[in-house]
Computed example of a mutant assay.
Amino acid sequence: MEINLNLNGRAVSASVRPDTLLLDFLRDQGCYSVKRGCETSNCGACTVLLDGRPVLSCSVLAARADGRTVQTLEGLQREAEAFVTYIADQGAEQCGFCNPGFVVNTIALLRENPDPTDQEIRTFLAGNLCRCSGYEGQLRGIRAYLDSRKGGKA
């Protein structure tokens, strides 16, 4: 089947099998930030934005993206660069495997709620699993970024 979509700002047309996962399609398109983690929709490593909303690409068929807009971390670099250093400064990127999912979800959170509370951050990012950290580093990094935007302590 033929699908047409906007991927990170460019038009893409491709032929896919009906059972092709969006995750596999995106990796075939060179979007290697999209990680295969648990394959059970539980870890968040494969998170992408589909029409601006975070989805787990391991549980979405590529055919569902036909006619839609998909953004991966490759297409969100400018938006991400504003806060990823704050996360890194907290040592929250230890192995880096979960980072793309965290970053994509954080972008979605900040688009929806530009000034979230710590609890709102925790709730929004709850579906992202990290085997290296206790999640507090990510929270501290996001909080430091938000505080810096307000002119507070970074």
Rank of each mutant, 00 (worst) to 15 (best):
V55N: 00
E74G: 09
A65H: 04
V60I: 14
D66V: 13
L76I: 11
A82N: 12
L76V: 05
T47V: 11
L50S: 00
A45M: 11
L50T: 02
V70Q: 00
G52L: 07
T85S: 11
E74L: 10
V55E: 00
Y86T: 05
D51P: 00
T69A: 15
R78V: 15
E79C: 08
C58I: 11
S59E: 10
T69L: 13
E81T: 12
R64Q: 15
G52E: 06
L50N: 00
V48S: 04
T72Q: 09
G75N: 10
D66I: 08
L50D: 00
A65V: 04
A45E: 04
Q71I: 00
V70A: 10
T47K: 00
G52D: 01
V55D: 02
V70Y: 05
L73Y: 09
A80Y: 09
G44S: 10
V84D: 04
G67W: 09
T85V: 04
D66M: 07
F83P: 03
L61T: 01
G75H: 09
R68K: 15
V60E: 03
V70D: 07
R78L: 14
A65I: 07
R53W: 03
G67F: 08
T69K: 15
A65S: 14
E74I: 05
D66W: 07
F83N: 01
V70W: 02
L73G: 04
V60C: 05
P54H: 11
R64D: 15
A65Y: 12
A62Q: 07
E79R: 15
T69W: 09
F83V: 07
